[in-house]
Design a protein around this nucleic acid. Structure first.
Length: 215
DNA sequence: GACCAGGTCCTTG
DNA sequence: CAAGGACATGGT
């Protein structure tokens, strides 16, 4: 039972990837250097990306848009810049924790790049305020690792396709299906988010019929 | 005014 | 482990 349904889920996941790639092709998503991606990964928690872009702009204005700078910055100044993303006190604390880890514990982004993906992931998850999605976003988009991001949109699209597994299984499923290429990981997750924003816009999707788009 | 947004942590049952 | 609340601003 579990073997056959997981095989079916795998086929569905592959289908989603193919359908969305045909629909959207090459798209630009989550631009910026590693520092900006990591900062954005924290700020985007439970918030629209447009608000994150404003916050990144404010951080740049204050010359604080890097983890090294955030590491030593006055928290109240950071709070002021990221207020528009909501949860601003919590997020400031999380940015500080991330900065301390990357700069202090790891000795910078370049030093981190020499570490295995699993090691970085474990380190990130140990930081208070960084969960699976934020860690995978950082691994995928800041460090170019093949760690697939499962977010609310991915879950929604999976559900539309009839896949009802846990987030953890969903992640493993896509990682089995995707080519071992960071760019493919970037694009696939970007496609899923685009599709969710454009088509499957409601939290409770009512039959967007993603699997029918290929007929 | 109600509801949601590219989550995560902490507390309870 | 699942469920519920807290964190908080901004857009529809």
């Amino acid at each position: 039972m579990s073997a056959s349904s997981s095989g079916n889920d795998k086929r569905k996941a592959a289908e989603i990837v193919k359908i969305l790639n045909t629909r959207f092709g090459e798209i630009s998503w989550w631009p910026g250097d590693a520092d900006e991606v990591m900062i954005g990964a924290i700020l985007t928690q439970q918030t629209r990306w447009e608000n994150v872009e404003r916050a990144l702009f404010f951080l740049k204005e204050k010359n604080l848009c890097s983890l090294a700078l955030l590491d030593t910055a006055d928290p109240s100044v950071i709070e002021e810049a990221v207020r528009c993303t909501g949860f601003y006190r919590v997020k400031t604390r999380r940015l500080k924790a991330l900065a301390a880890f990357v700069i202090g514990t790891c000795g910078g982004v370049d030093a981190m790049q020499t570490l295995p993906t699993a090691t970085i992931r474990k380190g990130l998850l140990a930081i208070n305020g960084i969960g699976e999605e934020t860690a995978d976003s950082i691994l995928c988009y800041a460090f170019g690792r093949e760690s697939f991001v499962i977010d609310a949109y991915t879950e929604r699209i999976a559900l539309c396709a009839g896949i009802t597994t846990s987030r953890q299984e969903l992640k493993a499923l896509f990682e089995k299906v995707l080519a071992e290429d960071p760019h493919v990981y970037h694009q696939t997750h970007a496609h899923i988010v685009e599709y969710a924003k454009q088509v499957c816009t409601k939290k409770r999707c009512e039959g967007c019929r993603i699997m029918a788009l290929n007929e």
